[in-house]
């Protein structure tokens, strides 16, 4: 074990001890998504307003008359977290400008699951990012509609069995490749886009802190393990998050003003079976099918490497959000 790894191991003690999402929330045992939320909140600190989409995280944290939230929080509906966040940002901006509230930076953070980000919420997200609100949007992607009963979304990976893409006698689960939303956000010209996973807590926390500093829109796509929906043992949550990165299925990278950088380097990609084996949702796949998925993983990983290597194509031009304010 080298020094860097040791540092990563001991550094958790340096993380903010304060919890902004309290114990007593009703997430399932071993929920990776609520861990993502907890770590995100630690990175954000107290000066935020969270706009949460309908979904697991909303349900488990806000059973009236109780709340697990230490920070101001609003939920309106499923598809509109980014639009509600836009409004919160606009409201705070106007009230500050007009001297109606204290003149202090308060970051607006939109939070949604894969359905609320990649499917039904994509339009509102696209609008909010295009308009350049000073807002961080975090997608907690557990690759299906878990709250409603494990239905497939556009975030569900090829071959995964869900309740609406079940493996059957003539079907092998999800028939489509996962939608690449981080890339869609890059195409919006969002000045900070990153992928993250709570299994790499410091990487995730650093990315949230970086996004916080951006004046304008930023986006983090956080991969979160769902033991209930994936039929994986609850204690494997962190391990699976590591495996998804080590197999190259979900590489951890960031895109700053169009410049790609891998934040967690993997020397030698592990075979994807290592990641798939502990999960019930992949149990039906044949070796041939796994091979097809493996080829695609290599292809996507190489595409990403090309983007990273193509750095020279980018100038140092910074996006200036709010130029015409």
């Amino acid at each position: 074990m080298n020094i860097i790894e040791n540092f990563d191991l001991y550094a958790p003690r340096l993380v903010d001890k304060k919890e902004y999402l309290c114990s007593g929330h009703r997430a399932c045992q071993g929920c990776g998504e609520v861990l993502g939320l907890r770590l995100m909140c630690k990175a954000l600190g107290p000066d935020v307003v969270i706009a949460n989409a309908t979904g697991c995280m909303e349900i488990i944290s806000s059973m009236y008359p109780s709340t697990a939230w230490e920070v101001p929080w609003i939920h309106v509906a499923f598809e509109n977290a980014a639009a509600v966040g836009s409004g919160v940002e606009a409201g705070l901006k106007a009230l500050r400008r007009k001297g109606k509230i204290a003149d202090r930076d308060v970051k607006v953070v939109g939070v949604a699951g894969d359905g609320g980000t990649m499917d039904i919420g994509l339009q509102a997200l696209s609008g909010a990012m295009e308009r350049g609100h000073d807002m961080l949007f975090v997608c907690l992607d557990n690759e299906a509609y878990m709250n409603t009963g494990i239905q497939r979304s556009s975030g569900t990976p090829m071959g995964a069995s869900t309740t609406t893409s079940p493996a059957g006698k003539v079907s092998s689960g999800q028939k489509t490749w996962k939608k690449n939303v981080p890339e869609i956000m890059v195409a919006h010209g969002v000045s900070y886009v990153a992928t993250a996973c709570p299994s790499y807590p410091l990487d995730f926390i650093n990315k949230v802190k970086k996004a916080m500093k951006v004046k304008g829109p930023s986006y983090i796509h956080c991969f979160t393990v769902c033991p209930t929906g994936w039929r994986s043992p609850s204690e494997m949550t962190i391990k699976l998050g590591r495996l998804v990165v080590e197999t190259g299925i979900f590489p951890l990278y960031e895109v700053e003003d169009g410049k790609y950088r891998m934040t967690v380097e993997v020397d030698q990609l592990r075979p994807i079976e290592d990641y798939m084996k502990p999960q019930g949702r992949y149990r039906h796949l044949t070796p041939d099918q796994i091979e097809i998925i493996q080829d695609r993983v290599y292809q996507e990983y190489n595409k990403l490497q090309d983007k990273i290597n193509g750095l020279h194509a980018w100038s140092d031009l910074q996006y200036e959000w709010g130029l015409f304010d």
Binding site: C22, H25, M63, S66, T67
Partner: peptide, 19 residues
């Protein structure tokens, strides 16, 4: 509006019984 004014009062709900 069913607004909750007491931050983090979910602590009163003990999930320890689930284990």
């Amino acid at each position: 509006g069913c607004i909750v004014f007491a931050p983090a009062n979910a602590r009163e709900y003990h999930t320890g019984s689930w284990k």
